[in-house]
């Protein structure tokens, strides 16, 4: 069960108030009439599906009803940050792998884990990942 910080309500709320809406920052082709089948198919169907850090769109469906972004790890499920529409992520796969190298922390490789994701802020502050 996630405990999600809504950047608009500025508080943590339970997962059930939210809906995930897939990959964030998808660009619609500027001129759909002119683009190739390749580009249009990619836009419609091909998503990043990383085993690791993912930037995704969520909606605070039964709260403020606003869309916002989450950066989350898809194996540990840890929420690394939430940010408003129009903003860019500050945590990325690249920035994290550099941090890991410095701290000697290994990213979890998945498999058997029974605990839910932790609130994002405390882990971020400590700079560690599950």
């Amino acid at each position: 069960m996630f405990h999600i910080y809504c950047p608009y309500c500025e508080e943590h709320r339970e997962e059930e108030e939210f809906h995930p809406k897939g990959q964030a920052h998808i660009q619609r082709p500027e001129d759909p009439e002119a683009c190739s089948d390749e580009t249009w198919g990619d836009y419609l169907f091909f998503r990043d599906n990383p085993r690791g850090v993912h930037h995704e769109l969520w909606v605070h469906a039964v709260g403020c009803r606003k869309f916002f972004n989450i950066t989350r790890h898809t194996v540990s499920y840890e929420i690394l940050e939430t940010y408003k529409m129009g903003e860019q992520p500050s945590v990325t796969a690249k920035s994290l792998s550099e941090k890991d190298k410095q701290a000697g922390v290994q990213a979890a490789s998945g498999g058997w884990q029974t605990v839910g994701a932790r609130p994002e802020s405390d882990a971020l502050n400590k700079g560690a990942r599950v």
Binding site: F2, E15, P20, R72, Y77, Q113, G116
Partner: peptide, 14 residues
């Protein structure tokens, strides 16, 4: 399915 991406072989209780 849980609506979010996940490779962790577990989902949400809800």
């Amino acid at each position: 399915i849980d609506g979010y991406l996940g490779y962790g072989q577990r989902g949400s209780y809800s």
